[in-house]
């Protein structure tokens, strides 16, 4: 088990039905796209979460959904400001170094891209964000404001102005031209990652240009 450190919660609040944003003081450096392990005590195996805050933020943000049968998230969601949790040092290599890239995420899979965005790495990037509803389109106002036409929200169950109605897979399939020579970064559940990867490959993107982060 990785070494666990104590962190004190600053905020832990719901931001959408079933989704919470946890924050605690940043006491370490990290690279946008990395994960940390979170546990409630010293003895349980930490679960991994992508950091959603920027590299220079004073706080670490963790975006999570509460799984009713989960061992961690139901009690985690009950914790208040001042409560302690156990965390690992950040690690992982889902890191975007290129100037031009496409970021594709669904649900809480937006977290690593939010971190890259809040770290000022969004210039030259295209972000395709998918969600069932606008209230679960996490951080979308930030993306809309700063990324403009490079930001493509896709909402599958609601029709909203400025938002593609459908899944990210539908959005990609309807694009007349897909750049094949640039890197693509995908984050979300395995099914989305696999489906998007298949579409990109079918559209001529070499698999060596596709980087994926999966939830498990």
């Amino acid at each position: 088990m990785r070494e666990l450190h104590t962190a004190t919660i600053i905020h832990n609040k719901p931001i959408a039905p079933g989704a919470w944003l946890l924050s605690f003081k940043r006491t370490f450096d990290f690279i946008a796209g990395q994960v940390i392990g979170i546990a409630l005590d010293q003895h349980t195996e930490p679960r991994l979460y992508s950091i959603a805050s920027g590299e220079k933020h004073h706080e670490i943000w963790i975006l999570y959904t509460v799984k009713q049968d989960g061992l961690l998230t139901p009690p985690l969601s009950q914790l208040k400001s001042g409560d302690k949790i156990r965390i690992t040092q950040p690690f992982g290599n889902f890191i975007c170094k290129e100037k031009e890239a496409v970021w594709i995420a669904t649900g809480t899979g937006i977290a690593p891209f939010a971190s890259m965005f809040f770290s000022g790495q969004h210039q030259g990037k295209t972000l395709i964000q998918g969600s069932q509803s606008m209230e679960r389109m996490y951080f979308h106002k930030h993306f809309q404001k700063e990324m403009g036409t490079s930001y493509h929200p896709c909402c599958s169950r609601e029709t909203t102005a400025g938002c593609f109605h459908g899944r990210v897979t539908d959005y990609l399939e309807q694009q007349p031209g897909i750049k094949t020579g640039i890197p693509y970064y995908l984050c979300g559940i395995a099914e989305m990652v696999v489906d998007v990867r298949d579409i990109l490959i079918a559209r001529g993107v070499p698999f060596s240009n596709i980087n994926s982060e999966i939830f498990f």
């Binding site: 395995a190 099914e191 696999v194 298949d198 698999f207 994926s212 999966i214």
Partner: peptide, 17 residues
């Protein structure tokens, strides 16, 4: 049943988890 790991060469991953 299914898999979360999304390996490029694996058919099971196409079912999702």
């Amino acid at each position: 049943v299914g898999c979360k790991m999304g390996c490029l060469f694996c058919m099971t991953g196409k079912q999702g988890f």
